[in-house]
C-alpha cells in the first residue's frame, strides 16, 4: 500500500489519523459527563449518554409538575433511567440535584419546551391548587342537590355492599355509591351551615 501512488499513500494514513483522533475526541467527550457525576457506577458504559427516555421524563414530570424537566432528566440519567427511584427520591423529600450546565439532555423540542414550560407549569399547577371544580360539578350532581335526598338514601341501603356478576351493573353500583357519598356529605354540610 505504502509503495502505491502518491495520492493514496498520503490519503489513507491521513484518513486513519483523522478517524483515530475523532474516535478519541468522541470518547473523551462521552466520558466527561459521567466522570463529573457523583455516581460513576450508575453511568455504566452501556448507558447511552444523555439518552434518557423521553417518556420516562414525561412520566415523572406528570407526577410532579413543579419539577424542572432538566433536573428530572439528570436524575434519571444518573440512576440509569429508573423512574421509580427518581419518584421515590422526590417523594421522600430529597430535592433533585441541579444538573451541571454541561448536561444537555435530549428532550422533545427542548427549545420550545424551555420557552413555554414556565407558563405551562404554572398553568398546570394552578389547576392543581386553585381552580378545582367542586364535587357537585365534578360528578354532575347539580340537579340532585336541591331535592330532598330521602329516596336516594333508601336506594343506597339496597345496593350497599352488593357484588354483581355483571360488569356494567358493578360500574353503575360504584358510581351510585360515590354519588350518594357526596350527596350525603352535602346534605350534612347544608344542615350544618343553616345551623350556624
Amino acid at each position: 500500500m505504502a509503495q502505491a501512488g502518491n495520492q493514496t499513500s498520503i490519503n489513507i494514513p491521513q484518513l486513519l489519523a483523522v478517524a483515530l483522533v475523532g474516535f478519541f475526541a468522541l470518547r473523551w467527550y462521552l466520558s466527561k459527563p459521567s466522570s463529573s457525576s457523583s455516581a460513576p457506577g450508575a453511568a455504566a458504559p452501556s448507558q447511552r449518554r444523555n439518552q434518557v427516555d423521553v417518556t420516562k421524563i414525561e412520566q415523572v414530570a406528570s407526577m410532579f409538575p413543579q419539577l424542572d424537566r432538566r433536573a428530572i432528566a439528570w436524575d434519571l440519567h444518573r440512576n440509569g433511567g429508573n423512574v421509580s427511584a427518581t419518584t421515590e427520591r422526590v417523594l421522600s423529600g430529597r430535592s433533585l440535584d441541579t444538573p451541571p450546565p454541561t448536561y444537555q439532555p435530549i428532550m422533545p423540542s427542548q427549545a420550545t419546551n424551555n420557552a413555554t414550560s414556565t407558563p405551562g407549569r404554572n398553568g398546570r399547577l394552578k389547576t392543581g391548587t386553585g381552580a378545582q371544580p367542586d364535587l357537585i360539578t365534578r360528578y354532575g350532581l347539580q340537579s340532585r342537590v336541591s331535592g330532598k335526598g330521602k329516596e336516594a338514601m333508601l336506594s343506597e341501603e339496597q345496593m350497599r355492599n352488593s357484588w354483581s356478576p355483571d360488569k356494567a351493573a358493578r360500574a353503575e353500583g360504584l358510581r351510585k355509591k360515590k354519588e350518594e357519598m357526596i350527596l350525603a356529605a352535602r346534605r350534612r354540610m347544608e344542615a350544618k351551615v343553616t345551623e350556624d
Partner: peptide
Amino acid sequence: YPNGVVCISILHP
C-alpha cells in the same frame, strides 16, 4: 404535595 400527590410511607417502595 400542592399537586395532590400523597406522601405517606405505605406508598413508598
